[in-house]
Simulated scan of single mutants.
Amino acid sequence: MGVDRGGHRMTVSARVAVMTPFAYLVIDYRTGRTQLLSTRPDGSRLAAGAAIVPHPGASLSWGTNEVPAVLGPVPSASLLWRLGAVPALMVTAVVSAMGCRRGKFWRMVRLSCCGRRFPPASRAQAEAAVRAVRWASPVIPARWACLEQSAAAAVLLAAAGRRAEWRHGAAPDPWRLHAWIADSAGVPVEEPADTVLYTLTYTPDGPVRRAPEGSTE
């Protein structure tokens, strides 16, 4: 159990199903396992209380959506934020590596939510944290993608006493997952325009939407 920003108790669900008119993506946050189904999951595949997230139902593009092939330059961050990014990356790397491989995804999710009881970060603070983490990330000699970078940015903001609006979402055609930092209004920070294609599945307050307990709808 946890407490959300309004002071209410919150049950942390580890399984989320993204529903579209043509497919269903089930994400198990404890194991990192995803299942793509062509039929609606029944109760045996969705535990009671699992979160159901409806996708807006965008039409199929048959994989023709364009994505950038070259990474753009990383905007600069102040020296103070860059210095803070180094221990934030170290903490994230240790949490990622410790424990069983099966639980890595869940550890990253929980780490990304570590500062959710703090006052929200301003847009400028969120931008500084993301830029500083991206500046320092090339020194990590391992896979360091959006999940790890966003978690490190959340750790950096938590160290500054601020809540990171961490986001995780899914987009179809082809199905893909993405993690990013948003501002307090929910606008992605230092992210490409196509981030809006992702439907939110998880935030620091848990799953975005939850079906009634025991429901498979």
Rank of each mutant, 00 (worst) to 15 (best):
A47F: 06
A47C: 08
A48W: 00
A48Y: 08
A48N: 09
P54S: 01
P54N: 08
P54D: 13
H55I: 05
H55A: 02
P56C: 12
G57I: 03
G57A: 01
W62M: 05
G63M: 05
G63P: 11
N65A: 10
E66A: 14
V67W: 09
P68S: 15
P68T: 13
A69W: 08
P73W: 02
P73F: 05
P73E: 13
P73V: 08
V74L: 05
L80E: 14
W81H: 13
R82P: 08
L83H: 02
L83Y: 01
G84K: 01
A85R: 03
A88M: 07
L89R: 07
V91Q: 08
V91N: 02
T92Q: 05
A93L: 06
V94M: 05
V94D: 03
S96L: 10
S96C: 14
C100K: 14
R101S: 12
R102Y: 02
G103K: 11
F105V: 15
F105G: 03
F105K: 07
F105I: 12
W106A: 13
M108D: 02
L111H: 07
C113Y: 07
R117D: 13
A121K: 11
A121N: 02
S122M: 00
S122I: 00
Q125H: 06
Q125R: 08
Q125E: 15
E127V: 15
A128K: 02
A129T: 04
A136D: 06
S137A: 15
I140K: 10
A145M: 09
C146T: 09
Q149M: 14
S150C: 13
A152I: 01
A153M: 00
V155T: 00
V155W: 04
V155H: 09
L157T: 01
A160F: 06
A160L: 03
G161Q: 08
R162D: 04
R162G: 01
E165H: 10
W166I: 08
W166Y: 04
H168S: 14
H168L: 10
H168E: 07
H168K: 03
G169Y: 05
A171M: 12
P174A: 10
I181P: 02
D183C: 07
D183L: 09
A185V: 06
P188S: 10
V189Q: 01
P192S: 09
P192G: 12
